[in-house]
Simulated assay, not measured.
Amino acid sequence: MSGPTPSVYPDLGALAGSGTLADIAGALLTIALVVAVLMLIVCAIAWALASSHGNVPVAAKARTGLLVAATGAALAGAGVAWVNWLLGVGAAL
């Protein structure tokens, strides 16, 4: 069976309102990144203040918040690259 090879790829234009959906997704990503950066700043300040005053429980919670905010920012940023990579792979198949 040596017929033509099928070309299957995502047709993002087939959905009605796909441009609006992309705008909403971009806006949500921007909000997620802004909130994550603000939380990084707030948690870093709280960790520094709690550590300097010897308040170990608050310092531990601030450190956890800092790590969670950093992970959230990394996932939100990496999500765009991952989806673009998947769309590129899908178009190449």
Score class of each variant (00 low, 15 high):
81 A>E: 13
7 S>R: 12
63 R>W: 05
91 A>V: 06
55 N>A: 09
85 W>P: 02
18 S>M: 09
41 I>C: 02
38 L>C: 05
74 A>W: 15
68 V>L: 11
22 A>R: 14
14 A>N: 08
78 A>V: 10
80 V>P: 04
93 L>Q: 10
24 I>P: 01
91 A>L: 14
23 D>L: 14
86 L>C: 06
49 L>M: 05
82 W>L: 11
61 K>A: 00
83 V>A: 09
67 L>R: 08
31 I>P: 00
73 A>Y: 13
59 A>K: 00
29 L>C: 03
22 A>V: 13
65 G>T: 04
84 N>I: 12
7 S>A: 08
6 P>H: 06
16 A>G: 07
15 L>Y: 10
84 N>W: 15
45 I>E: 00
92 A>S: 11
67 L>Q: 11
63 R>A: 01
43 C>A: 09
51 S>E: 03
35 V>A: 09
41 I>P: 02
58 V>R: 02
8 V>C: 07
31 I>M: 04
81 A>V: 09
62 A>F: 01
34 V>W: 15
59 A>C: 04
77 G>T: 12
20 T>M: 10
26 G>I: 11
52 S>M: 14
52 S>K: 12
20 T>F: 13
1 M>V: 09
42 V>I: 03
43 C>T: 05
39 M>E: 09
13 G>Q: 08
42 V>K: 00
70 A>E: 14
47 W>Q: 00
18 S>N: 10
77 G>C: 13
69 A>I: 03
70 A>I: 13
27 A>V: 09
28 L>S: 06
19 G>H: 06
92 A>P: 05
70 A>N: 12
78 A>P: 08
30 T>E: 11
93 L>Y: 10
8 V>W: 15
56 V>K: 03
22 A>P: 03
58 V>M: 05
1 M>A: 11
64 T>S: 00
47 W>D: 00
22 A>Y: 08
7 S>I: 12
86 L>G: 02
61 K>P: 00
60 A>Y: 10
29 L>Q: 07
3 G>T: 04
79 G>W: 12
60 A>Q: 13
79 G>Q: 08
37 V>A: 07
